[in-house]
Amino acid sequence: MSDFVTVTNLTRSFRSGSPAVDHITFSVRRGEIFSLLGPNGAGKTTTIRLLSGLIYPTSGEVRILGMVSTDSSQMERIHNAIGLLPEVPGLYESLSAMENLRFHGRMHGLSDATIHERARELLTVFDIWGRRDEKVATYSKGMKQKVAIVRALLHDPECLILDEPLSGLDPEAAKSTRDFLVEQRRRGRTVIVSTHNLDDADRLSDRVAVIRSRLLALDTPSDLKSRLFHSRVEIRLQNGSPSVLDRVRSLPGVVNASWESPTLILELAEPENELPDVISALVGAGFRLQYVTPTEHTLEDVYLKLVDEARNSAGAGS
């Protein structure tokens, strides 16, 4: 897979305070869903704007399809290659959805027939086609968000850059939007998403970048989890007691053990190898096992650990 976006030592400072984005380097491959995670003020929106070529870096560079984002001679190609959903939908409220889409389509050089066809296809997916001629001001927050997503897709860009795409959507709409994004990836589109919703990021993303001005981590969700946490197994015992901890802590491969009655929680270095020995030892010691459940750390655990570590190291440094 070739890279769609390459970011090298990207820094963006504003007049006051420390850089919003500080020496970030990463690349986004064609046809992947790439999520940017980070707390409020971590520089996600600034990064999105830098990736979209809307603002320029203080230092470092962004290359989109090999073109430098600050190259004004390539601006038209860059903007046609990207479909942007900003943090706020930013629709013209006194115009209808169709008028909004017609305006943006024409700005991208689309013919009216193409705009109509694309708008019909996309608005139908989001169930707004029937209300296309109503003023946007009469729409709910979720409907506005859907129209803004359609606007980002209207000119058939190779890459979608979406800032909080599921914000304001009800569960059903959020599900259809998630499915829609997965479908876009299947069609070979690159999707870059900034989100606070870690569950969505976990389910959707091929890779995630956790940022807090600086890049804290970048990997697939599963690799991040296994890199930061050991595998966890919960064993529910019928006749358990805290004394079981003495029995299991001495076993090889057990990194951590805790007791939450009636469940024994173990962290194992390599569960495939060590779990049979653990089970044998427990059975041998007379414990009766009801369930053995491998549990995964969530992306939220990963995120909180990374952000907490970053906060602590920043605190220690200051």
């Binding site: 704007r49 979209s52 809307l54 601006m75 038209e76 903007h79 046609n80 990207i82 942007l84 900003p86 943090e87 706020v88 939908p89 930013g90 629709l91 013209y92 943006h104 700005m107 991208h108 050089g109 803004a148 606007r151 980002a152």
Partner: peptide, 10 residues
Amino acid sequence: HSLEPLLATP
């Protein structure tokens, strides 16, 4: 907030 999508056009 319509400036951002406008500037994202060519």
